[in-house]
Simulated assay, not measured.
Amino acid sequence: MDLRAERPTDTPAVRNVHLRAFGDHGLVVADLVDTLRSTVTPEDGLSLVAVEGGQVVGHVMFTRSLLDAPRRLVDVHVLSPLAVIPEFHKRGIGSALVRHGLEILAERAVPLVFLEGDPGYYSRFGFVPGGGLGFRKPSLRIPDAAFQVIRFPEHEPWMTGTLVYAEPFWRHDAVGLRDPDAQDREHPRTGTAH
């Protein structure tokens, strides 16, 4: 398996990874990735792929967001999304992508990386629940246990506050969990909330 930065020629394959990995939610995630891609620069953000047998089988993205700390805004990163094609699950591909990305971000002096995810999976990389460390989640729809953070050496004790997701996460409604039944009850004809 080869881990490397995503290339422009990988775009269709990366989209396919997310469509296959996320099922019914795949289109939202694939569209989010397409939008976030434009925010990744050589100095800021990270988009990595795992290639096996010449095929892109996994993808992870780290993008810049902000921490609204008492002293000032702090540049932080968000790990989202992470996906591996289903038939390649349980081979350590996702773990390898996350570890590689975290190593690169630590070298870039990023102080904090946040995510929404399964604590049982992400704790192996050093992620811990953010609420108990003075961090506030950007949406009440994020379960407390899912709101996680990893602190790097550049983190200073005053760097606490509210995570502010980059605008594409809001535009694609990719923050927290939605209750489709609640939306249907509010607007049974359209299925959307206003």
Score class of each variant (00 low, 15 high):
88 F>N: 00
72 R>G: 00
80 S>A: 15
62 F>E: 03
72 R>F: 01
95 S>Q: 14
83 A>N: 06
92 G>T: 10
66 L>I: 11
70 P>E: 10
77 H>Y: 12
61 M>I: 13
86 P>T: 02
97 L>P: 06
90 K>D: 12
75 D>E: 09
74 V>D: 06
73 L>H: 14
64 R>T: 11
101 G>R: 02
86 P>M: 07
68 D>C: 13
71 R>T: 15
84 V>W: 00
95 S>T: 14
79 L>C: 07
72 R>T: 15
63 T>G: 03
66 L>H: 11
67 L>P: 09
60 V>N: 01
94 G>H: 03
85 I>G: 01
85 I>M: 14
90 K>N: 13
73 L>T: 14
83 A>H: 03
78 V>E: 00
75 D>P: 13
70 P>F: 09
77 H>G: 00
99 R>V: 02
94 G>N: 00
78 V>S: 04
76 V>Q: 02
61 M>R: 07
90 K>E: 14
63 T>Q: 04
101 G>E: 04
80 S>T: 12
66 L>F: 10
95 S>P: 12
69 A>W: 10
64 R>G: 05
67 L>V: 11
82 L>N: 06
94 G>C: 09
79 L>Y: 06
85 I>Q: 04
84 V>M: 01
85 I>D: 05
73 L>E: 14
98 V>R: 00
89 H>C: 13
68 D>K: 15
99 R>D: 08
89 H>I: 10
93 I>E: 06
88 F>E: 00
99 R>A: 14
96 A>G: 15
90 K>T: 13
88 F>T: 00
61 M>T: 10
83 A>W: 06
61 M>Y: 03
88 F>Y: 15
78 V>R: 01
93 I>D: 06
79 L>I: 10
65 S>T: 11
99 R>C: 05
71 R>W: 03
82 L>G: 10
75 D>H: 13
60 V>E: 00
60 V>D: 01
62 F>M: 07
79 L>F: 09
89 H>K: 02
74 V>H: 01
97 L>R: 03
91 R>A: 04
76 V>P: 02
89 H>E: 13
67 L>H: 13
94 G>I: 03
62 F>N: 03
84 V>C: 08
93 I>Q: 02
67 L>M: 08
85 I>F: 00
101 G>M: 05
72 R>K: 12
69 A>N: 12
80 S>V: 10
68 D>Y: 05
77 H>C: 08
63 T>R: 05
63 T>E: 05
93 I>P: 04
88 F>A: 01
65 S>A: 15
70 P>S: 08
96 A>C: 08
71 R>L: 14
99 R>K: 12
63 T>P: 10
70 P>R: 13
67 L>W: 12
86 P>E: 07
81 P>W: 04
81 P>L: 08
80 S>D: 08
71 R>Y: 11
96 A>M: 11
85 I>V: 15
97 L>F: 11
93 I>S: 04
100 H>P: 02
97 L>V: 10
82 L>W: 09
87 E>T: 11
70 P>D: 06
87 E>S: 12
64 R>E: 09
71 R>N: 13
88 F>C: 03
96 A>N: 10
96 A>E: 14
86 P>V: 07
60 V>P: 05
59 H>V: 12
66 L>Y: 11
76 V>N: 06
90 K>I: 05
88 F>G: 03
92 G>P: 13
60 V>A: 15
84 V>A: 02
97 L>N: 05
70 P>C: 12
61 M>V: 14
71 R>A: 15
65 S>R: 01
91 R>E: 08
73 L>S: 11
69 A>R: 08
